[in-house]
């Protein structure tokens, strides 16, 4: 596990620098810091290690680094941040390489494999993060402003020709998302009998770039997107109304003709880590915040270009009351 010390190492170095700056005499040498580190290590609690998966989106980074920073500062945990996609993260629960996935958007297939009951029980649900994922069809703001009626799916066909591109084979183009997300758009398009063709962006970066470009160049674009996402701070996309979600309307993938449900984002942890019962387990269980909270940290990272650690630190300092509640 030593391999992934790098972020915590960098943090340690940053912290060391901070203490260095604070100490009045600037002649702090490597030796002094070494013995200081030794003392601190002896004094701090026995949290041990926390292997935190970091899935590749900014909102996730916000959650991960806020929780990770607290675990380190308050309980002396050694936090190993691991940049991983969702699948690999879940695979890691069983081997002890991953302890925590802090923001899960719902992976029924993975739950089937790794949750108690159907799967091997290596992972378990630690409750909601408080964030609500609002998945759906979005258009850039200029479009919503200029053609307000476009926000109703019934009117989409009216503009289909304007959505046409070289990729959409004569129909309107619907921008499908990063393949990491479960998408029913092809079914929705066909079941609502829309004159559109789903073209997949292939990656979140491509989707974001497409929406940014569409807003900038005033192009027609409609596609799958979701909130919370840092892009909304720059380009507040507008959601298109689809037939309301009802329980069971997405059970048969081929028959879907309704909107996506509001997704409760949750925390998933490795069973063995939870059973060890370190102090950080309660912190993670208690951790809950709002979309606005997350968007703020995400904005620090994505727009203000802060390092995730620094962004988390800043938010923690600005929101002592919320943090207090999690520490219980």
């Amino acid at each position: 596990m030593r391999t992934s010390l790098k972020r915590s190492g960098r943090l340690a170095a940053a912290a060391a620098c901070a203490t260095l700056a604070l100490s009045a005499c600037g002649s702090s040498s490597i030796d002094e810091q070494t013995s200081e580190n030794k003392e601190n290590a002896a004094a701090s609690g026995d949290c041990g290690e926390l292997n935190m998966a970091v899935n590749p989106w900014v909102g996730y980074q916000a959650d991960a680094y806020v929780v990770g920073t607290l675990a380190k500062e308050k309980f002396g945990c050694t936090v190993n941040y691991k940049d991983l996609k969702e699948d690999v993260s879940w695979q890691g629960f069983g081997t002890g390489e991953v302890d925590l996935v802090i923001e899960d958007w719902g992976h029924p297939d993975l739950e089937k494999k790794f949750f108690e009951g159907e799967g091997d029980g290596s992972a378990q649900d630690l409750g909601p993060t408080g964030n609500e994922g609002i998945i759906g069809w979005y258009v850039p703001p200029w479009l919503a402003e200029k053609y307000p009626d476009i926000l109703d799916h019934e009117n989409l066909d009216k503009y289909a020709q304007q959505f046409k591109t070289s990729e959409s084979g004569g129909k309107g183009q619907f921008l499908g998302a990063d393949p990491s997300y479960v998408q029913f758009d092809e079914a929705i398009v066909s079941n609502l009998d829309l004159d559109f063709k789903v073209v997949f962006s292939g990656s979140e970066a491509a989707s974001i770039e497409a929406f940014e470009k569409a807003e900038k160049d005033k192009e027609f674009l409609i596609g799958y997107f979701y909130e919370p996402q840092w892009l909304f701070a720059e380009v507040p996309l507008k959601k298109v109304e689809l037939p309301d979600y009802e329980d069971g309307c997405q059970d048969d993938p081929a028959e879907v003709a309704c909107d996506y449900p509001v997704t409760t984002l949750k925390k998933v942890a490795s069973t063995s880590w939870v059973e060890e019962g370190g102090p950080a387990v309660d912190l993670v269980k208690n951790f809950e915040w709002t979309n606005d909270d997350q968007n703020e940290v995400a904005k620090y990272i994505a727009k203000d270009k802060m390092e995730p650690e620094a962004a988390a630190q800043k938010w923690i300092e600005e929101n002592p009351d919320k943090v207090e509640a999690w520490l219980g």
């Binding site: 996609k85 297939d109 990729e167 990491s180 292939g202 491509a206």
Partner: peptide
Amino acid sequence: IGGLVGAQALGYDVVLGFSRSEE
């Protein structure tokens, strides 16, 4: 890489398989 920038086809299929365990 093409699959990652919206070229569909085999590239997208590979990315899809990489992104979702059931695929």
